[in-house]
Simulated scan of single mutants.
Amino acid sequence: MEYTLKNNFLEVRVNSFGSELTGIRDLKTNEEYVWQKDPKFWAKSSPVLFPFVGALKDNKYSYQGKTYDFPFKHGFARDYEHKVSDKGENFIEFIFSSNEETKKLYPFDFNFYMKYILDGRKVKIEYRVENLGNEDMYFSLGAHPAFTAPLKDGMDYSDYYLEFEKEENGDAKVLNGALIAAGKTENIFSGKILKLSKDRFINDAIIFEKTNSNVVYLKNTKNDRKIGFEYDGFRYIAFWNVPGAEYVCFEPWNGISDFDNCSGKLEEKVGIEKIAKKETYKRAIEITIFEV
């Protein structure tokens, strides 16, 4: 079911299936900033990545001596119906909990919350993970919103660029298929500006670790429209699209695909998060649609 938050500036739409953001519309210009799901390229708009980000080596992992088959990329939370746990005039919160089906794939008891808050021209998404078990819980968390580019007719994808708030060295992870190549990086850019082009993501996502910036902007060379994206508290930031599609994904991650030389043990997985029994983990991102 789709739910709507609305104020004098923006209309935000969220689907309870996967707690997926499906729209951010500027009410002044009537422009839609979220990618509107074209199955020809990609049938998602903003899936949540939990309890894993990316792919697992050989589609499996081991934990406490037991091997679990896990054939899904980016976890499973995006593929379940979530329930509304709380709702107010300017926010809505969803909950997804472990069940018999999830525990066959992932042996932890949890509550996973996503809360959307509309504040002026900002959309804040809060994530909360509750460990309901009596042992440490290992997991990853990531966001994956896709923003429309170009936004207006007469513009091209190559008119767009990413601008980091601080200077970056632009060293990105190197992929080995769906996995990360151990010990390898590739310099993509330097400075603050990463230009987009139709073949920019021909080799899949571009992944940066521990950027100097906590904010990155989506801008273009033809007008003053821009989006601000804050991802403080996330170790990785990735960008991606299907070449030829008119969007770019902003993907803050705490977690990453397995490295090609990994042991397969969950406790040793690079980038994995851990919370103790009965602990709660919180992160948030913030999207700003600037007025033009």
Rank of each mutant, 00 (worst) to 15 (best):
M1Y: 13
E11S: 14
V12R: 12
N15S: 10
S16W: 01
G23S: 15
K28T: 15
D38Q: 11
W42Q: 07
A43T: 00
S46G: 14
F50D: 11
P51L: 07
F52A: 02
A55M: 04
L56Q: 04
K57M: 08
D58T: 02
D58V: 01
N59Y: 02
S62R: 14
Q64R: 15
Y68P: 13
K73Y: 14
G75N: 06
F76A: 01
D86V: 04
D86H: 01
F96W: 15
S98V: 10
N99G: 12
T102V: 10
K104S: 08
Y106Q: 05
F108L: 00
F108C: 01
M114W: 04
L118I: 03
L118M: 12
R121D: 14
K122I: 08
L132S: 00
L132P: 05
D136K: 14
D136E: 14
H144F: 04
H144V: 12
A146D: 05
F147P: 08
L162V: 15
N169S: 07
D171M: 10
V174D: 03
L179M: 11
G183E: 13
T185C: 11
F189L: 05
F189P: 07
G191V: 05
I193C: 03
D199M: 13
I206W: 08
I206R: 09
K210L: 09
K210G: 02
N212Q: 12
Y217V: 01
Y231T: 10
D232V: 00
D232N: 13
I237L: 07
A238G: 04
N241A: 08
V242L: 09
Y247G: 08
C249A: 15
E251D: 14
P252D: 07
W253K: 02
I256N: 02
D258Y: 01
D260N: 11
N261I: 01
C262V: 07
K269Q: 06
V270C: 08
G271A: 04
G271E: 11
K277G: 02
K282W: 04
I287H: 12
F290L: 03
F290E: 03
V292Q: 05
V292S: 03
